[in-house]
Design a protein around this nucleic acid. Structure first.
Lengths: 146, 146
DNA sequence: CAAGTAGTTTAGAATGATTTTAAAGTGAAA
DNA sequence: TTTCACTTTAAAATCATTCTAAACTACTTG
């Protein structure tokens, strides 16, 4: 907990959004900086494109939904955010880019984080020839009792 | 392998599609029997709604795409098939209803089965109060080397 | 700093998967 | 056999996401 807070502080303060974007290989446009300011504060969050546009709007800014989608794809492709693997009808993104896992409440669709070290993935199968393991995602589906 | 074949044989032959549907609590309509004949042969398969409609057509039958979707939802809800948790733009279903896992080829979108016993899920986190574990799905994302 | 260019944003149209609608059809119970 | 709830259907509707192509803007080079 202490370390997490420390990390968030450092992450938040040491680099400007402009620097974070450049480091990720993205041209720091006005729109990307607005989004980076919202998303890249070191706090773990799940969100959809629509959620994000709402946040952009409540921050006093605005931008085309096409730009929101463009940015999310760019941010995801260069690893600034992650897309969660679920069969929900809307894409869900995650600001936590470290390997971790989720509970999925099957009734509500809610996703709850599980830290990587809470799951013991001892034996994994042999990775197919010519490929490498680019991340493991565990989903534990939850149903209400009774 | 021997056991699997034996199982498939039994599963295929012991119950008619009509009986399987009834056992699952579904009224055995003409359309559901056509689909059950295609899907419930004990062979593990991944497919989309469109894939299935193609198979229906090549079997000499035909049905509305709305019916295909209706049936898939019913079959899934009563456990005759499973929907795979991935963020692909099209829903992917699986005739293997036992707990198992997948490799996801991130370049092609291809899904490859992993048997449950190939992954050692020793420690799982505490399930939230009032819920129970309704299935664990592990996804190993693959990328091409180099 | 000026001009050029590649990359970006945008509104609106287009796409594609899935769902809805409402009317006609059908399985099963009595 | 009648009845009724459930199912199927074609077509329209919906909804998330992508495309289009024109206007804009960040960076490079001179």
């Amino acid at each position: 907990m202490f370390i997490e807070n420390y990390y968030q502080l450092v992450y938040k303060d040491i680099m400007t959004s402009k620097e974070k974007l450049r480091k990720a290989g993205l041209r720091p446009t006005k729109q990307r900086m607005i989004i980076a300011n919202i998303l890249l504060d070191g706090i773990n969050r799940h969100f959809t494109a629509e959620n994000l546009q709402d946040e952009i709007n409540s921050s006093g800014n605005s931008m085309s939904i096409a730009t929101v989608y463009n940015c999310l794809k760019k941010f995801r492709n260069c690893g600034l955010i992650k897309q969660i693997e679920t069969s929900k009808d809307t894409a869900v993104f995650d600001t936590n880019t470290h390997q971790h896992h989720h509970f999925l409440n099957e009734e509500t669709g809610e996703l709850i984080d599980i830290e990587d070290d809470e799951i013991n993935l001892k034996s994994l199968p042999k990775i197919p020839q010519g490929y490498f393991n680019n991340g493991v995602e565990v989903l534990i589906k939850l149903k209400k009792q009774d």
